[in-house]
Design a binder for these strands. Structure first.
Lengths: 199, 199
DNA sequence: GGCATTCGTTGCACTGACTGCAAACTATCG
DNA sequence: CGATAGTTTGCAGTCAGTGCAACGAATGCC
């Protein structure tokens, strides 16, 4: 699928990318209200009908997510050294990855967007749910427990909650704040059983 | 607001209730796809335009939420004995309350609905977010920390995640399962720092 | 009781997301 | 070159949601 040959497949990837970029640019230049499917398509140079051949909703174009990432997360968590506790394994896998992503170009814009446009929250949550399932699968492999064991699910859910909170805190924090530090602190609270900080 | 006098105010509450009941009944009898605003209003005997004088979205009619509940949660958490840790306070406040609610009439139906109708997930998440803010406010009062301190936010977010997971597990569990037990177990994992279970 | 005000209801017109269908178009393969 | 398969597009239609202005009933004032 991803490596289909020919001019055709190439054009498809190009169009998909053009639609995504058009959507993001449109938000940045003209504000959230200006982002209609029609406007996105005009900017990307395709027909509005075509948009829905690529994305099932407007939000999908803005917050895209690749199933391959989930697969990677699952195996990465599963493959961490056996000595690490499940949370610690998750912390080690996601801490660096998310911090890197946050430092990258578009994600800062996207997080800003999610605050402003309530419609995007649903999409964001859907993506986080996808990550949560991936984490649960990794923890399940690691512990030998079923993927829907309460411990496995609570661990995945709480970890996602910690990540989400850290990301949120980072978008609110003054520029230059280190995202890795926030993620680390959030997980530290989790691993301490949510004991109140000493200070 | 809640105790306004007169026939007028009475009619308003009646209409609101009629719309909610109409929506729930419609799902149960005719399936999720049949639940259009038009159909709801036909059943409730009001004009479609009137619907949006009561609810800003279709989902709001199905999953209603009262700001008073949030206020109650905040003070209840804040007022627990000082000896209890924040998570323990949350556990004590929500454990019983949620278990009671789950046992009640409509919530079982609603949870079933949320699984089937993806549109409702967004609304459910919004409600949980509202609870999360209420919990954070309670923890903030209790600890003297700011409401947006990372510890406070992680604690509230992780607690909501635990509750959500327990609710989810309960809807999947065989009939007759005790919801209080699941909630208790979920919080126990949280308080243990997500250490894997011994068994 | 009559009258003006207030407030909920409703119809109308409109925008915008999203879908199914069928036609037009084009890269690819034999 | 011609058949085929995959892509784009227009069109028509459903449904959610909003602003506006008119209508009608409850309410308060005199």
């Amino acid at each position: 699928m991803a490596i289909t040959r020919g001019r055709r497949a190439h054009r498809k990837l190009e169009t998909r990318d053009a639609l995504q970029r058009a959507a993001l640019e449109l938000v940045r230049t003209s504000g959230p209200d200006a982002v209609t499917v029609e406007a996105i398509c005009a900017r990307a140079g395709v027909s509005p009908r075509t948009f829905f051949n690529y994305f099932t909703s407007k939000e999908e174009a803005i917050i895209d997510w690749d199933a391959e990432i989930d697969a990677f997360v699952t195996t990465a968590v599963a493959d961490r050294p056996a000595a690490e506790s499940p949370v610690r394994a998750i912390r080690n896998v996601l801490g660096a990855a998310v911090a890197d992503a946050m430092g990258m170009d578009m994600w800062q814009d996207r997080m800003q967007l999610i605050r402003e446009q309530p419609g995007l929250i649903g999409r964001f949550v859907a993506v986080m749910g996808s990550v949560q399932r991936a984490l649960a699968a990794g923890v399940a492999r690691r512990t030998g427990l079923s993927s829907d064991h309460l411990y496995v699910e609570v661990t995945a859910a709480a970890s996602v909650a910690a990540i989400r909170t850290a990301i949120q805190a980072w978008t609110d924090a003054p520029a230059g704040t280190d995202p890795a530090r926030l993620i680390d602190d959030a997980f530290a609270y989790l691993e301490s059983g949510l004991a109140p900080p000493a200070g």
